[in-house]
Amino acid sequence: MAAVSRGVDRVLAKCEACIIAGNYYEAHQMFRTVYFRYSGQQKFAEAADLLYRGALILMQHNQHSSGADLSLLFLDVLNKSKSSVTDNIIGQISELFEKMDPECPERYPFLTKAITWSSKVNKQHKRGHPDLHQRFGVIFKQERNYLQARYHYIHSSDGEGCAKLLVEFHTNHGYSSEVDMFITQAVLQYLCLQNKTTASLCFEIYTQKHPAIDKGPPFGMPLLNFIWLLLIALEGGKLAVFTVLCEKYQVSINRDPNYREYLDQIGQLFFGVPPPQKTPQGLFGNLLQNVLVDVDSDEEESMSGASFSHPQSRIGASGSNVLNNSTASSPSSSKSRKSESNFEVD
């Protein structure tokens, strides 16, 4: 390893001299040339080290697009070498990301690429490594980009960080009538991502810290009690309990039509509710499905402006319905409905 860094050190010294002399273009090209040489020789550790340090030096000298270019190459190396996820690399990625100009066009591709890398080398995190998401969450929060921060916190295991973010997000940008909904939305999404522990912690901290929520549980707001009891019910996993809760709190659940769908998914994941049948049941179910398909299927996610279209962010959902009259079995999915019914927790 010492030999590794000695080689890299030499190159860096040369490039740095170049940069100090103001020859940024030359320095940038030199980094690229050496990188291609290393990478051709399969010297991935050297290549990654060089690119990481090179990108930082360039950005320190306000050469943002050159720095961003090397940052992207850095991720290419990680991808090519199938480097496993380590704290060290996560630290390097988040450092590069933090120093990148938030406006530069490479920043979002960098983020996507980083998450893709972390999901590929680590199959159990197919939506990206939670620690990496956590770092992105922190950085976006510092930049007051709450929306992006929220997305990444939901994919992290940092329930406390997420709760604090949500309190800040809600008090700055939400309506007072939504104080219980901000946390409900987050908890249900965590649960759809099968992250029960983080969901519970997030709920606990949010309800403690939010100035507009009185001490509990039990709380003065029914929706909060619903979530509190739901989180307990997950432990026992009894479908009957889940069904009672959904029934008794229907009015609160209906405040956001999406809760129902999240709860369907949660029913399947935690309470053994069978997934929806493949064949449409009855005329009404069929009609309803067609309506939903129409509304749902136009122009995929092109409108998602805020870059919420990471492919990793999708999770399969479906329309079984513990919540719709418990009697009628699910309005179930026609084939086309099925492909459209994936929703992203983002």
């Binding site: 709450y146 929306l147 929220r150 997000f169 809600h170 700055n172 940008h173 939400g174 309506y175 009538s177 939504e178 909904m181 901000f182 939305q185 987050a186 999404q189 029914p222 709190y249 009015v251 609160s252 209906n254 405040r255 956001d256 999406n258 749902d296 995929e300 996610e301 409108m303 998602s304 805020a306 919420f308 279209s309 962010s313 929703f343 992203e344 927790v345 983002d346």
Partner: peptide
């Protein structure tokens, strides 16, 4: 309590942006 609950007023952009794009 839910019996007396008033209908949900329109939701804020901040809240809605927590939803997936399609939704």
């Amino acid at each position: 309590r839910q019996r007396d609950q008033r209908p949900q007023p329109p939701l804020s952009d901040a809240y809605l942006q927590g939803l997936p794009a399609k939704r």
